[in-house]
Design a binder for these strands. Sequence first.
DNA 1: GTAGGGTTAG
Length: 793
Amino acid sequence: MATDLIGAYIACDAPGQAISMLERLAPSHSTVFWWNALIRRAVRLGFLEDVLGLYRKMQRHGWRPDHFTFPFVLKACGELPSFLRGASVHAVVCAKGFESNVFVCNAVVTMYGRCGALDEARQVFDDLCERGIGDVVSWNSIVAAHVQGGDPRNALKLFDRMTDDRRICPDAVSVVNILPACASVGAWSQGKEVHGFAVRSGLVEDVFVGNAVVDMYAKCGMMDEASKVFKSMMVKDVVSWNAMVTGYSQIGRFEDVLALFKKMRENNIELNVVTWSAVIAGHAQRGHGYEALDVFRHMQVCGSEPNVVTLVSLLSGCAAVGALLHGKETHCYAVKCILNLEGSDPGDDLMVINSLIDMYAKCQSSKVARMMFDLISPKCRNVVTWTVMIGGYAQHGEANDALELFFEMLGQENLMKPNAFTISCVLVACSRLAALRLGKQIHAYVLRNQLESVMVFVANCLIDMYSKSGDIDAARLVFDNMKQRNAVSWTSLMTGYGMHGRGEEALLVFDEMRRAGWVPDGVTLVVVLYACSHAGMVEQGIKYFDSMSKEFGIVPGVEHYACLVDLLGRAGRLDEALKLIEDMPMEPTPIVWVALLSACRTHPNVQLGEYAASRLSELESENDGSYTLLSNIYASARRWKDVARVRSMMKHTGVKKRPGCSWVQGKKGTATFFVGDWSHPLSRQMHVILEDLIQRIKAMGYVPETSFALHDVDDEEKGDLLFEHSEKLALAYGILTTPAGAPIHITKNLRVCGDCHAAMTYISKIIDHEIILRDSSRFHHFRKGSCSCGGYW
DNA sequence: GTAGGGTTAG
């Protein structure tokens, strides 16, 4: 009688009444059923903490959980997820002798899987197998644990073992579990086998299975296969259609997406938020932010409610095109409609916040990004939060801030483990700063954590870091040791050789690349031309440029023309460079005119320089570099009035010359110097050294090239100004702090000054160091009185 | 037991 009442209470969701009645009953076998019923109800309703409360309460009142109780309780632990509580339930399972109950043990495996405890899950599973009581559910559980735990490769291995085991017959769940794993590692041939199995066993008629097959092919980019399966499906639902939409969106076939939309309407399938989000994401991932925004608008017109996923995709689109205003609108929308909604997953909120930080950083608003970052309490941040902020800094010339934040991340109380993304961002920052010492430490970290073996990306960043930090041979070593390479690996190495003026080697790599079967793209050709230009290989460069379309099927873009202008200009062939610009099939962009203007500085030509500068200012008036170049051109012609005019023009238009800045990586960190910056504690000694060196090289024939000083003052004073250039200060500091015989590495934010270049060439003859100077475009190795650039500074 | 999402390189 009492138990009937309890059942009724449970059925009408009055658990309090049911519990108080149960507590008044004496423990007997029949009433465990009602505790289980209560617990099951709580699991269904998602009251996970209540499940555990009931579990404790029933034990306090003397009832023993049975083989029905444990799976529910374990499910609650897995969904919370709470490893500690799950493990203690597992301990009780063992203590009460339930380890031979496969039903209970399968639930333990699933629970551990949900908690990310793959080793524990595996141990329970292996135990089941050893005792020969594992069933298909056990196998499905352990495979699912590996798929969800981010270990798809082992999931695939386990699935293979499962199909080899004759006692086990995979079911629909097995197939639906394993196909996403195939897709995530691009194992389409294994996916094809699973598909074959599904067909032979008839499972493919299950709409879940069919969807999983379509999804697998679509994610592998095999839309013909996906389409074939899709068409053959007797029963389709919106998930089937969305799998196709996603597939086409990912490979950018949006006209096929539109065709699907039409058919969906014909079949009365309503587009849902997943459909729209997938298309938005497809555009965003291809860098088509404005198309993503269009789809978003369309979605709203159609009355579909965006959700977290929609916003995250949309923000990545805004970030890709630097659409700050749209990003801000999306931010407002998120605050109004999405963030902090009752019952929303806090992980989802963090994802939106991470996307917002990334969007602001990529839209040049790193201050706003940092404000958002600081607003999140450190214990709520995850590794992506840190990475987007570090990456934002690294990419926008705030490399020091990037590194500072990275160290802050490492010092967090709740241990934050950098992942491959974080490491890539940090390496970008190292590259910018030429921070070789830190870069090497990061490399060691990469090796210890085996990040490079799975991540071509990280190794590519290492190549870039080493070559931009002055150690191109180390870059080569990283390259040679890569098990897998992609086109970026090759071009990174070529860029390195190009920057170091080792054009022949860059071209050898280019040949190697082609022999290895890689098809060069537009970027590769830019690098090839750049290498030719910086090594003075004019004829070679022209040949490559002329054969681009024929040999590689690449139509020269404006960036290739700019390279060729640079190439001709460096060689002093200014008329040809101008003719090339005039004959260009497209409108020249600023980089083209800057290339010509630089050439007019290297090979003084006032008239052409003026022309280039005027064309440049039509396109962008705020380029401080172009004013400096023009002023240098006038100065070298000793046209001081024009120099003054340019300076007043700069003042008038509010263009500020970026201050020259050089730095040296020493054992105790970085020492940074600005022009005329004598604030360093070693300044006195630096001054003495410079004075002495300049005296000595003057005796060797060095004549200060005062035209670089940008001032109309008498020569003696200009000599002083040259004396104070940041790269000379950095050199003096390097000499003071670098052990004899070791190279001095200097990095400068702008192009090296011609006088400094000349002075360093002389100085390298009399000091016991090689000087390796990286400026904004390339490396200069000064050794024994000559420079690797061969005068093409 | 099925679908969509945030961070990385030339």
